[in-house]
């Protein structure tokens, strides 16, 4: 009886893993399938011959390296700026009791519930006279704002995990409050900071709606914008599209490994954010 239960449990886990990985496996499979086999071996699990031709083409003869670079710049800048701002705000929320604290937390929470698609039109209108449409800087500004609330909650929970005694000891030892923050608290929060950077990077890397709206030229396109325009232009070359897709997957997976340990803390801190 117990053995059957254990077997069923393992099989169920395997089924979940298969369901989670199959789409990604298929992406990789098509990206290494030579064009001449794509249709004849359409639903075979692995092609009889594999090729890296699609990757070579995408890397050498398409704009994807450019899109990749743009996305990397935007996502890294967003991640670092948002984490820095959230670090300070999260510290204030964690360490000070001040009038208005509840309002600030409430405001941050509300922005998480908010239909961001509502802001597409007004943000476009407001950024355009500032020259921030069709600009990577503009995207970074928007992404930072969207990600700061969640990053604040995350950083606050990391700060909450550091005993107050430590900075009090430092302040008695002769440090100012800011000195204690910089020399004692920050070094101890480094893993939390890394996790926050990872979360924000992942979010910025996958953002699409505002990128579509704000970016109009190929040179400024981020990966989703580039990939979607590629799809509508050359919707026949599946191998190349999927090779590009695999490329988009790589940084996301790397950052996933970085934040894996903090997933539970992160998702419960935000509770609302995807």
């Amino acid at each position: 009886m117990r053995a059957i239960g254990t077997l069923a449990h393992r099989l169920a886990i395997l089924a979940y893993i298969a369901f989670a990985l199959f789409p990604l496996f298929w992406l990789v499979k098509v990206s290494v399938t030579p064009n001449d086999l794509l249709y004849s071996e359409g639903i075979r699990l692995w092609p009889s011959r594999t090729t890296f031709e699609h990757f070579r083409f995408v890397l050498a003869h398409s704009d994807f390296p450019l899109f990749f670079r743009n996305s990397l710049i935007v996502s890294l800048a967003t991640a670092f700026v948002a984490t820095a701002l959230a670090g300070f705000a999260g510290y204030a929320l964690s360490r000070f009791a001040f009038r208005g604290k509840l309002t600030v937390s409430g405001l941050l929470l509300v922005t998480q519930m908010f239909p961001l698609v509502m802001l597409v039109a007004p943000i476009f209108k407001l950024l355009s006279p500032l020259g921030l449409t069709n600009s990577l800087t503009g995207l970074v500004v928007v992404y930072v704002a969207f990600n700061v609330p969640f990053a604040c909650f995350l950083m606050q929970s990391f700060f909450d995990g550091i005993p107050r005694d430590l900075e009090e000891a430092a302040m008695i030892d002769g440090a100012s409050r800011f000195g204690a923050f910089r020399q004692i608290i920050l070094p101890l929060t480094l893993p939390g900071i890394a996790a926050t950077v990872g979360f924000v990077f992942t979010a910025a890397w996958s953002e699409m709606i505002f990128a579509l709206m704000l970016i109009s030229s190929n040179e400024k396109a981020t990966f989703p914008v580039g990939l979607l325009s590629f799809v509508s232009k050359f919707s026949v070359d599946f191998g190349q599209m999927m090779a590009a897709g695999v490329l988009a997957l790589i940084p996301a997976c790397l950052f996933f490994l970085l934040i894996q340990r903090y997933l539970v803390q992160g998702l419960t801190a935000g509770a609302v954010k995807g």
């Binding site: 005993p163 005694d165 009090e168 000891a169 302040m171 008695i172 030892d173 002769g174 100012s176």
Partner: peptide
């Protein structure tokens, strides 16, 4: 501020 009082403290933790 604590740092200007020239005192030392041993904490329970």
């Amino acid at each position: 501020a604590p740092k200007a009082r020239d005192i030392a403290m041993v904490f329970q933790s």
